[in-house]
Amino acid sequence: MRALAALAGLALLAGCGSGGTSALTIAAASSLTGAFTECGGDARLEFGGSDDLAAQIRQGVGIDVFAAANMKLPQALAAAGKAGKPVPFATNRLVLAVPLDSRIGSIDQLADAKLVVGAASVPVGDYTRQVLARLPAARRRAIEGAIRSEEPDVKSIVGKLVTGAADAGFVYASDVVASRKLKSIALPAKLQPTVVYGISIVHDSAKARAFVASVLHGNCAGSLRKAGFGPPPG
């Protein structure tokens, strides 16, 4: 009898492991947490650094839809035959985030600050490096010298800022809106990188297509605009 119960338990476990039959599994960039949680319905949502999520998809983890904070990562997955062709669905702006009471007012006041950025492999860190590369060498070095941590995703950067562990960090404008404890300092227009989010279908299904449609011009598009994301380019 007990053996039967154990077997039933094991079967149940296996059922969970295969993700059930109906729920859609969506892997999305950390910065999409607020918007997708609001509009995701009964989908299973996994948030993380886009690079880590892409690596999971490469390892064959059962993900149906991939929403990344750039086009590069989903394009690479498509080129490797691991996912469909990505479509741009939102834009964002990179900003310098500081606590509400901070006296830092521009990216040139970071020399004595504790600055946290994204690791080079995660989109937010990639965009940050694009910004720094556009600066003259002396200004760039002053900012690079202030970097105290390279975090795996935006949530981790915001966490360091709201707990006071760091003074400033490069994140997306939408992260600052979501945190409510930070203010954003806009970057000069000529430094602003093009931040375009791409979505691709990893395992095709009617549900997956419906979700992508909602992200492009449905319920989720509304949640994205509300969270501070811009409409896709073009």
Binding site: V116, A119, I147, R148, S149, E150, E151, P152, S156, G159, K160, A165, A166
Partner: peptide, 8 residues
């Protein structure tokens, strides 16, 4: 990661 951060 949470307390110390991550810098080479």
């Amino acid at each position: 990661l949470m307390f110390a951060g991550s810098l080479r």
